[in-house]
Amino acid sequence: MADPRETLVRAENVRKWFGPLEVLKGVSLQVAKGEVLSIIGPSGSGKSTFLRCINQLETYQDGRIFVGDDLIGYDLQGERLVPLPQRRVVEQRRNIGMVFQQFNLFWHMTVLENIIEAPMLVLGQRRDQAVETAMGLLRRVGLAEKANAYPMKLSGGQQQRAAIARALAMKPDLMLFDEPTSALDPETTGEVLNVIADLAESGMTMIVVTHEMAFARRVSDRVVLMDNGKVDCEADPETFFRDQPSARLKEFLATIH
């Protein structure tokens, strides 16, 4: 892609095994600052695993993932990858927000407490400052009146919007979305997709693993098909969905339509 923008995420030949099973077989991808990349693919294709490698919820065993200047999870000594100490991994995660399929809001805290927790604990923000940011974010995702509710009292769509606000409160450079609407009713899917689309509009760099083709087409700058632990093809959304530049993609799109 002829984009003059600076590259934020650079994955080179990333490989990962779960025991003897090779789940990532050399994934290479780049995401520019401000770009929205959607990853689609059949289940078991490694798309979620790849996403989780970017913030080290999973470790990869070979290749490189750079976010900005940071080599994620490793220190490069010559050509050898030396695992970073846990403390450094924890630091690297601060700038990378993640939204999960199951929301994973801390159920023992109110929505507001969920959002201010990490900024206060990890970034050392003062409470009033964290609350101000949090309320701004809650207004942005349309949940200001739910600030003092516990997650169990919210619908799935509301929980996911709160989870997005929680991730944004850390002011990340990059947002990862791991099938953010797969656990939602069709009625509430829309409200979450709108929030994500808004965020895309605002210039946030995002990688979205999704099964929502219409959404991927509407919001993404680029779409990638992952299959069997590899990138099968990538293109801008128009080309991707109209021309369907690979046989595997044609097959995949045919099965889901």
């Binding site: 924890v90 995660r93 999960f100 994973n104 927790e117 990890v122 991730a167």
Partner: peptide, 15 residues
């Protein structure tokens, strides 16, 4: 998932 969410927010093991 609760632990993963906490990790993704940059919390260390003790936190």
């Amino acid at each position: 998932g609760q632990i993963e969410a906490a990790k993704s927010l940059g919390m260390g093991t003790f936190q």
